[in-house]
Each structure stands twice: as structure tokens, then as C-alpha cells.
Design a protein around this nucleic acid. Structure first.
Lengths: 226, 226
DNA sequence: CACTATACGGAACGAGGATTCCGGATGACA
DNA sequence: TGTCATCCGGAATCCTCGTTCCGTATAGTG
């Protein structure tokens, strides 16, 4: 399902032209392989590994994606697209706020776990590829809205921000991804986290909610240093 | 506090002999520098960076620790020692179970965040250095006991295992470490997680608690493949 | 079927980083 | 203070991995 038959945002050199049939096939294979290996090994995954898994030569990988970073960016962007789609679906659904929110965070954790880079990036470890910037903003807006509705309905505690939400579930996703990626385990932990977010048992929290502004600040500081 | 004046489990070559004074000093410096840089950059930290930070040449680093892995292992083992010390203190204290448990998980997350490798390794990403095996077991025993007491006292939900506990807080630690490592943020999130662990708001959980056995299985599988 | 623009595989190359080596410096001890 | 074993710094070496190059293969087309 992760094929890129719809559009190819970048191409090595030359403006754009319909890819030859085998090229399209290979590109998709590479993307799938990369997604899988990046998820497994973070970006420690090797170009050669990816090529092998995709059943192509390294040359092929590097022709389609001029740089390892470009490949990573594309996979990341892909993930964001799916995430945003889920978020939009949740927003559009007429489920109760609690249900919509819970379903969505399960999906969120799922996406992030399947590709741990996504989780890392949402926690600002990685630079965001420019193509993904607006997707990220859409994502943030969606989380804000879903959380807001749930809080307004009184089913989620008020002292939690959208940025907190993203972080918390990214943490769950990251750790379960690192530890084998069993979806059953992940769902369990998401459920625990959700219990922690209910107003019923809420204990006063130290500190203040994290804002996306803070996240961006961390991101800047990081790219500033190197 | 991180000096190794007590014992030096490994030495490049030759059985063992008291290190010359300057050598001991340098060894300690290297260890401290490594701890700091590994915490900051995971094991992306470079030998040269570590040497520079420690104010020594690369040769010195490599003589004391024949391999980058050896250095990493030593830092890891060090962390485990501190963790186990905290755990023992918590066990020995006569605080109420709830207090002891909560204080300990805060410390746990703190340790793990300060050195993100620790968090990753507790989630079985890394192989455990042999020197640390018994420390890990002591750790597990302590968590088991502290959690058991808290559950017996009815302040922590029953459908959570010691392994779950380790994973959940490792997740929090990991994500906050990745996102800048602000302790205030970490404490906030630990508090949320703790709320999720209280019996009051507990919702039925899907799946079954994770056992240390499962963790070990993942570890084996991983080292099997490579 | 023949022809050509594309794409392919994988060897060759280069950069970055870990490890090794060795001449010079230094702590330990008589 | 003199001697020597030990340790130090950092240049040299080796290895891994991303990227480039090129001869060969193939999809697309008439």
C-alpha cells in the first residue's frame, strides 16, 4: 500500500517525465524496503541492506534517491501523509470526542512505531523535510482539535497540551518499536497512557504543559549546534 | 563520582596491575566525557569528540578501552550500578509503598534519560555487557519487589507487570531525552504515567502483561539475526 | 524485429571514523 | 637525581558506508 504510483515529488535529475515501468516498480520496492528497514534499525539501516531487501542494486537506490537523506525524507513524508489522513478521518467522523480521540492516538502510536524515525522526528530529533512541513502543521492542528473536543467533553484532563499528547504517545511508540514492535504490547501501553490522561484519577502535575513553540525551539537549537 | 577507583573490570592487555596515577585520572576523565557525550548523542558520539572533551588524545581513549563498545559497556555498567543503588535505597527505606515506588520510578526515568543508551538497552536494543548481567537481575528483582508492595497496598493497578513498568518509564525517558532532556518535562510525564497506573481510573487492558521472559526472548532473537 | 533512450547491477571511489603504532614525556622508585 | 617501565599524543592505517561511474540489459516504439 505504500507504493508511490500516485505522484513522485522528486526525481534525481531532469524535471519530470513518466518513469519507465520497471523503474516505477523498483522505486516502489525501494521505498517499501526502506520503510521496513528504517523502522527496524532507525537510520542505522544501510543503503546496501535496503537495496538487497528490495532486490535491486545499490546503484538503483541511489539513482532514484540521490541521497540517503532524500530517501529518508520521502519515507517520512509518506508516513506523515498517512497520519494526516487518519487525523482527518477522525475529525470528520461523528463519533463521540472520546472515541475519536482514543482511536486516533492508537493509530498515531501505530504509525510512529511502524517507523520509529517518525516518532523520533515528532520529538524533534530529526530535521523535517520541507515537503513535510505543511503536513506536520496539519497534523498539529488535527491533534489540537481532537484533544480540544475531548477535553471540552470532559473525558481528557485539561492540564495536557497537544504537544504533550504527541510526545507521550511518541514515547510509547518508540519504546515498543525498539522492543520488537508487537502491536498487542503497544495497544496495552497506549491504553495505560490513556488512563493516565483521564480527569478522574488526575493528580496535580508539576511544571507546565509543553507547547509546540517549545518543540520548535528545541529543533532550532539542535540544528544550530550541529 | 564516576571514577573507577574501586575496580577496573577490564584492561587492554596484561592481567592487572595498579594503574599509574595519571593513567587513573585520565581513565576517569574519559569515562565522564563518554557518559556525557553518549547521553547527548547516543552512540553517535565520536571517539575523537570524547577524547577532546576529556582533554586527552584518541590514543589514550583507545588504550584504556580497546574498543568503542568496551567504553560504551563500561558507561552502561556504571549506570546500572547507580540505578541498583537507588533501587536498594528505595527497598530499604521505610516509606509507604506508594511513595517508595513513585520516587523510584522518577529516579529510574532520570537515569535512563540522562543516558539514553540505558533506556534503549533496557528496552533490549543493545546487548548487555556481561559484567552488567547480574546488575540487571538485581534491578529486575528490585522493581518486582517495589511494584509488588505498591500493588499489595492497593495503590498501583494489578494488571501491570514489572517488565511493563520498566518499559513504560523507559519510553518516557527515551522520548524526553530525545526531545532535549528537560527534567521538568520528564517529571511531568512520569506523573501522567503514574496516574495511568493507579487502580482508581483503571480501564480493562487489552493483551497480557509483558514478562521479563518475553524481553529476553526479543533480545535473543535480535542477537540471533544480527 | 531493430533501435534508442532509460534503467540496471555492481565495481570503484572518497569521506568519516575506529583502531594501531611509535617516538617522546612522565610517574615511580632507588 | 637518574633510570626505567608506563603512559601520552596524534599521525598513519584500516574499514565501513554513501555516492559515482560505466558497460550491459531492457522497455518502449515504429
Amino acid at each position: 500500500m505504500t507504493t508511490t504510483s500516485t505522484k513522485n515529488p522528486e526525481r534525481a535529475t531532469s524535471p519530470d517525465k513518466p518513469l519507465r515501468a520497471d523503474a516505477q516498480r523498483n522505486r516502489a520496492r525501494v521505498l517499501d524496503a526502506a520503510e521496513e528497514l528504517f523502522a527496524q534499525a532507525g537510520n542505522g539501516a544501510t543503503i546496501e541492506d535496503i537495496a538487497k531487501r528490495a532486490g535491486v542494486g545499490v546503484g538503483t537506490v541511489c539513482r532514484h534517491f540521490p541521497t540517503k537523506q532524500a530517501l529518508l525524507d520521502e519515507v517520512l513524508t509518506q508516513s506523515f501523509r498517512e497520519l494526516v489522513a487518519d487525523a482527518d478521518a477522525a475529525l470528520a467522523s461523528d463519533d463521540e470526542p472520546a472515541v475519536a480521540f482514543e482511536r486516533f492516538v492508537h493509530q498515531l502510536a501505530g504509525h510512529q512505531a511502524r517507523r520509529r524515525m517518525l516518532a523520533e522526528q515528532m520529538a524533534t530529533e530529526l530535521e523535517l523535510p520541507p515537503q513535510a512541513l505543511e503536513l506536520r502543521d496539519a497534523m498539529r492542528a488535527a491533534i489540537t482539535e481532537l484533544l480540544g473536543r475531548a477535553q471540552a467533553a470532559g473525558v481528557i484532563r485539561d492540564d495536557i497540551s497537544p504537544a504533550d499528547t504527541a510526545m507521550l504517545f511518541a514515547g510509547i511508540a518508540l519504546i515498543t518499536a525498539v522492543a520488537g514492535g508487537d502491536p498487542a504490547v503497544r495497544d496495552r501501553y497506549v491504553a495505560v497512557m490513556l488512563d493516565g490522561l483521564r480527569p478522574a484519577a488526575a493528580t496535580p502535575l508539576p511544571g507546565r504543559p509543553m507547547q509546540y513553540r517549545d518543540v520548535d525551539k528545541i529543533l532550532q537549537r539542535r540544528s544550530g549546534k550541529g
